[in-house]
Write a protein that binds this DNA or RNA. Structure first.
Length: 480
DNA sequence: TGAACGAGCCC
DNA sequence: GTACGCGCTCGTTCA
């Protein structure tokens, strides 16, 4: 043990925070334009829809049992009451428990496979409540009117509240605007507009955390995936996980392998939980191969018929899916990506020895952390430092060129700009150059290629109408 | 009235 | 042996 060692933060790392704050001040000052007429209408409309759904819930036969349980305190928006009704009163088996109190959880995942119209209506309503409360009303509360007569919000960006030295954002939080659920995404993103006659442009780093993890461990197999645009790590993993030839891996199967095995494994999860969640996906979402046959049936034909107990405190039973996922996990870390696997062990061992570490971008950590934190902090923080560095180059450069385009937001690995159409091509070229060339030049520790994906909204269109950008002979166009 | 908790949205 | 990383905001519950 050598716990006397202190890992320092370099002057360069510190200066980037300071310059980053100056960039943030400018982003905050610009603000994002909001469609106030739409917002007011949406609040009214969604409020009505929630009322209608609540009325439907009250007319369901099961509502009477709910009311008998809670009497005057009955609240059709209470997760705890729903949980007590379904798992207590109706006797369904709870699948998940809450962290602190150990009660039956009331998350949507906890009700997966429970086929009651009542429950479906509840979660539909909750989704609308989320959109109304956190997002629509959250935006309206922050509205201010500019001299141009239009309405704006000015999200606050901070660099002092995240342990990994990522940024955070509040009032309103611009970094968690719905995107995955189409209904919510449209409801909320329609609020956000470019300035009149302009268009919103969003430029993302692709796979930045995977690329930055490579800068730490330099695993040659991962390096090959990153350099080869035709390779597809997640589809390859799906093939392995579902014992399929690569040609029979469907989009859904790839998605399940990526989000329920590869990413969780990257962040430090292990096989019992991965097996459970992958199995739930193939069972309840009915995931199929490219020819439409059930993956569950396919696994059965290969001799894997049962999920297994997936209890972390017990050894998996031979022949179960859990044992299969354990085998895949061993292969993943000890063969396929063995250099990355060894790095994780060595990096954590060094932390145990010295009590800290310094990230590639130069931040010193000297504090008690869990194994997963030790492995993840540097990768998460350094990925964001790439974006922050890009902002500190891009924003002064836009001003130096006397351009009217402005940066109006940032979301960990992407930048959002508000551009007059006659500047859009130049801004995209500039931002791409800064992000993929200037940043690696400024950060010698970035030892793999960085890539970006521009997305473009039509002129005067809201943030929901965002399309992949494509470089053509006449400049950047929209792929619809 | 405020804190704790659970839930749900993002990367 | 491992036990999913980092945030913000909201509504409910309860002291």
């Amino acid at each position: 043990m050598n716990l006397g060692k202190k890992y320092r933060t370099t002057p360069e790392a510190y200066m980037l925070l300071q310059n980053g704050l100056v960039a943030f001040a400018e982003i905050e000052n610009h603000g994002v334009r909001v469609d106030k007429a739409y917002l007011d209408g949406a609040i009214e409309q969604v409020t009505t829809r929630i009322g209608v759904l609540e009325e439907k819930i009250r007319s369901d036969p099961l509502y009477e049992r709910w009311r008998r349980l809670f009497g005057a305190k009955t609240n059709v928006g209470s997760p705890e009451q729903l949980s007590k009704l379904v798992f207590g009163e109706l006797g369904y088996q709870p699948k998940l428990v809450t962290a602190k109190t150990g009660r039956a959880a009331a998350t949507e995942a906890a009700f997966e496979g429970i086929d009651l119209p009542f429950v479906k209506m509840y979660f539909k309503t909750q989704k609308l409540r989320k959109g109304l409360g956190t997002y629509l009303k959250g935006v309206r509360r922050e509205l201010v009117r500019h001299a141009d007569g239009d309405w704006y919000v000015h999200p606050s960006y901070m660099l002092n509240s995240v342990t990994t030295f990522r940024s955070s954002c509040s009032n309103p939080n611009f970094t968690n605007v719905p995107t995955r659920n189409k209904m919510l995404a449209e409801m909320v993103r329609r609020c956000y507009l470019p300035r009149r006659g302009r268009q919103l442009v969003e430029i993302d780093y692709s796979q930045i955390e995977v690329r930055i993890s490579y800068c730490y461990h330099k695993d040659p197999t991962l390096g090959a995936y990153l350099r080869d645009p035709n390779s597809d790590m997640h589809a390859d993993m799906a093939a392995k996980l579902f014992m399929l030839p690569r040609s029979r891996v469907s989009k859904e199967a790839r998605h399940a392998a990526k989000n329920k095995f590869v990413f969780p494994q990257y962040y430090g999860d292990f096989y019992p939980r991965c097996a459970e969640s992958v199995w739930n996906a193939i069972e309840f979402q009915g995931i199929t191969t490219t020819d439409g046959s059930s993956i569950k049936d396919h696994l059965a034909s290969k001799g894997i018929k049962a999920k297994g107990k997936c209890d972390p405190s017990e050894r998996p039973l031979a022949g179960t899916f859990e044992q299969h996922v354990k085998d895949i996990e061993d292969w993943f870390w000890n063969e396929r990506f063995h250099v990355h696997g060894k790095w994780k062990k060595d990096w954590y061992a060094s932390y145990l020895e010295t009590g800290g570490f310094q990230t590639l971008s130069g931040f010193g950590f000297n504090l008690p952390l869990s194994r997963n934190d030790v492995i993840n902090y540097g990768i998460q923080g350094d990925s964001f430092q790439c974006l922050l560095k890009a902002l500190t180059i891009l924003i002064p450069e836009l001003r130096r060129r006397r351009m009217r385009s402005v940066v109006v937001g940032e979301i960990h690995d992407c930048v959002i700009l508000d551009c007059p159409p006659d500047e859009t091509d130049d801004v995209i070229e500039l931002a791409c150059r800064v992000m993929t060339e200037d940043v690696p030049r400024a950060f010698p520790w970035v030892v793999t290629n960085l890539e970006v994906e521009p997305e473009i909204c039509p002129v005067d269109a809201c943030w929901f109408e965002k399309y992949k950008g494509r470089r053509t002979d006449s400049g950047w166009g929209i792929v619809t």
